[in-house]
């Protein structure tokens, strides 16, 4: 379980996270929803220790953030983070060199599924292929949690479909997944939990199926209530 307890964070004078508490369970796809600039990415970065927090605490299976989490949590940012002159193959080798949790067989499988070529340079990949390689780097790690920042934004429809397919496959099964998004439409049926962020606060956290079952409301309905009503 990933736990956020009253996390606060400001950039300069801007309070990005004022009081953020939520939990993300293993085996669930938890979706952080909020308009852009609301602090969704900051939440993910804070879990990974990529940006210090000003208050509160973050626990991953009861442990604080530190170097030991990097074999247990994978973060897929909204951009690839490998030097542009590296080739696809070299970037995979890099991951293999550093991570004990790297699963080469799975990486190969995804390479084939995404039709990526090892010899291609990262700088020469299309937007969609870059996103796919980025996904490959993160999902080929045998980790308990995967964090994805806006995996669907700014890519073509076909790549989008392929990536959706990844979500419904064994690649995310049994893991705890946190994804951020500002548009819910495409993935409404994919996610288990929703955390609505607004102005640095968590407005609501709920289970999608429970919400439909008990109140007959779609995620969009709840969002409308929270943000407009």
């Amino acid at each position: 379980m990933i736990e956020f307890k009253s996390v606060r964070k400001k950039y300069g004078r801007k309070k990005v996270l004022q009081d953020v508490s939520f939990t993300a369970q293993k085996g669930n796809i938890t979706c952080l929803i909020g308009i852009n600039g609301v602090g969704k990415s900051t939440v993910l970065k804070a879990i990974m220790g990529l940006t210090p927090i000003d208050g509160g605490s973050i626990l991953i299976d009861g442990m604080p953030v530190g170097k030991h989490i990097y074999e247990h949590v994978a973060y897929i940012p909204d951009h690839i983070s490998m030097p542009p002159n590296m080739t696809v193959g070299a970037s995979m080798q890099f991951m293999k060199d550093f991570y004990a949790s790297w699963n080469e067989a799975r990486a190969e499988e995804m390479l084939t599924f995404f039709k990526l070529k090892r010899s291609d340079r990262i700088s020469e990949l299309s937007k969609g292929n870059t996103a796919k390689l980025n996904l490959l780097h993160g999902l080929s790690l045998d980790v308990e949690y995967v964090l994805m920042d806006e995996p669907f934004s700014g890519i073509d429809a076909f790549s989008r479909e392929q990536i959706t397919e990844v979500f419904t496959s064994k690649l995310v099964e049994d893991r705890g997944v946190i994804i951020t998004t500002h548009e819910i439409n495409d993935i409404e049926h994919l996610i288990d939990e929703v955390v609505l962020l607004d102005n640095g606060f968590v407005k609501s956290q709920f289970n999608c199926e429970d919400m439909r079952m008990q109140e007959g409301k779609s995620v969009m309905d709840v969002m409308r209530e929270v943000y407009i009503g």
Binding site: G27, T168, S169, H189
Partner: peptide, 17 residues
């Protein structure tokens, strides 16, 4: 369960349920 999740584009947990 896995196949149906992929085909219907739903999450494997939902298929399981």
């Amino acid at each position: 369960r896995r196949e149906i999740a992929g085909k219907l584009k739903i999450n494997p947990n939902t298929a399981q349920k």
